[in-house]
């Protein structure tokens, strides 16, 4: 590399303050986690749940916090999302979700009726997922210090099989399955954001996916690795896995389902649906010879690509017209473009 003097006065690799981008699911968030949190703590894995050996059996343990404006959005609300998010993180390790905790940070002045609706929604979601909310915590902060309420849920789950689902289990040739269409949650939220609003029938995809994972496992699919798509969307999830597994992934854009209205809303705002948030979709890596069987178990899913080889962390995608491009992490949150 040629020797160069860094004459630029603006090396913004490190920001002296936390930005929204540090929570945006992109490169800044990855750096924050790796350089600050992981350096200080003792993370057990680079998956959504830690898998702990407790008295001879395996236990999955995870936590997630939920901040969303508005609290109620087309297709869901913060309460059901707080249950689904943690249930899904457990499911991604292959565990059967068992019990959750729920901690609330409430803003002074929040209508009691709003809180009741959120709690009802959580209870209904927990029943539907077959988990119990068994412990919790409550704090209240002054008016103006929270967007109504924030929720944290933690969860534990147990394993009914011996598979180890993590990026290191991925093999060359594996098929990549996507469980459904993408981009609905992010665009449902965006439709109500001040300054960017639009009208549409787009509803969030917020849903538990534990049942789908159980169906795949029950059907004998030898799953290697699972990841649910949240902030940063499909693209960020696959890049993260590619980096962890040091795997080169080849995707086919035309195999990725996106509803027409989601695509249209993305076109209007200059957003790429690949990076838009989801709350009820996941990708699964599985042996290629089981791909057809997996699709017959989950008919809404599609095979969007393959693991081309190991040793090189790279994600490429073939466009519908035949060219290909590199898929990378965004810096932070995706910002609407001018044109």
């Amino acid at each position: 590399m040629p020797d160069f003097t860094l004459s630029c006065p603006i090396p913004l690799t490190t920001y002296p303050h936390v930005l929204m981008a540090h929570g945006g699911g992109g490169r800044l968030m990855r750096n924050l986690i790796q350089q600050l949190f992981a350096a200080a703590f003792d993370p057990q894995s680079d998956t959504d749940s830690a898998v702990l050996a407790v008295s001879g059996s395996r236990l999955a343990f995870t936590t997630d916090s939920f901040v969303v404006t508005p609290l109620f959005f087309p297709g869901g609300d913060i309460g059901s999302m707080a249950v689904h998010g943690t249930v899904n993180d457990l499911a991604m390790s292959g565990a059967t979700p068992h019990s959750l905790s729920a901690a609330f940070i409430l803003e002074e002045g929040l209508p009691m009726e709003t809180l009741w609706r959120v709690v009802e929604s959580m209870a209904a979601a927990a029943r539907a997922c077959g988990v119990r909310i068994v412990t919790g915590d409550t704090k209240v902060v002054e008016r103006g210090k929270a967007d109504g309420l924030y929720i944290n849920t933690s969860g534990i789950g147990f394993f009914e099989h011996a598979l180890v689902l993590e990026p290191a289990s991925i093999r060359a040739g594996d098929a990549i399955l996507l469980s459904g269409d993408i981009g609905r949650h992010g665009m449902a939220i965006m439709s109500s954001r001040e300054g960017l609003q639009f009208e549409s029938d787009i509803t969030s995809d917020s849903a538990p996916v534990a049942g789908e994972v159980q169906a795949l496992l029950g059907g004998g699919i030898q799953l290697r690795c699972l990841r649910d798509l949240t902030r940063g969307g499909l693209a960020s999830a696959l890049v993260e896995i590619s980096l962890s597994a040091r795997a080169r992934l080849g995707l086919t854009e035309s195999a990725i389902q996106t509803r027409q209205d989601v695509r249209a809303a993305c076109e209007i705002l200059g957003l790429d649906p690949l990076y838009v948030a989801n709350e009820g979709r996941f990708v699964a890596f599985l042996p290629a010879d089981q791909a057809d069987q997996a699709i017959s178990i989950l008919p809404a899913a599609s095979i969007i690509g393959h693991v081309e080889r190991l040793g090189e962390p790279l994600v490429t995608m073939e466009s519908p017209i035949g060219g290909s491009r590199i898929i990378d992490l965004l810096s932070g949150e995706q910002l609407p473009r001018i044109c």
Partner: peptide, 12 residues
Amino acid sequence: FGDMLRVPGSST
């Protein structure tokens, strides 16, 4: 517009 927010000026 959104993408102007990330453009660095001379110090920030």
